[in-house]
């Protein structure tokens, strides 16, 4: 169980990093959106792009799960359902962020 303070800090820390990463991501997507499969794979083969994309997925899943946890805590009064939902979201975000790293490695290598 995370302390409320570290939850608060992690939420802000990931927000600030994501602010920069997302600006980079939106500009990149605008540039490569019409590219073919091979061109997109080539774009991801650049180490800088691959590393930033991995950082994007890890931080986004973290930020999303922290945010959804707060919303669930605020609006679901049944403690059993609430805790179960929070647990599912936590596990889900961990699995998906690990899988996305795996997929990016699969594309790069």
């Amino acid at each position: 169980m995370r302390s409320p303070l570290s939850h608060w800090r992690l939420q802000r820390f990931s927000a600030i990093l994501l602010l920069f990463i997302t600006i980079w991501l939106v500009t990149s997507i605008v540039c490569i959106k019409d590219n073919t499969y091979d061109e997109i794979v080539m774009w991801m083969n650049s180490p800088l792009n691959a590393i930033t994309l991995i950082a994007f997925f890890i931080l986004s899943f973290l930020h999303a799960s922290l945010g959804l946890k707060v919303i669930i805590e605020d609006y679901i009064s049944n403690s059993v359902i609430r805790n179960r939902l929070i647990f599912i979201i936590k596990i889900f975000s961990w699995i998906l962020s690990l899988l996305s790293i795996f997929f990016i490695f699969m594309i790069v290598f």
């Binding site: 499969y37 997925f57 999303a64 996305s100």
Partner: peptide, 13 residues
């Protein structure tokens, strides 16, 4: 949307 982004990476891989 993040989940769909994940789908994009998965299909790409």
């Amino acid at each position: 949307g993040l989940f769909v982004m994940f789908g994009f990476i998965a299909f790409l891989a």
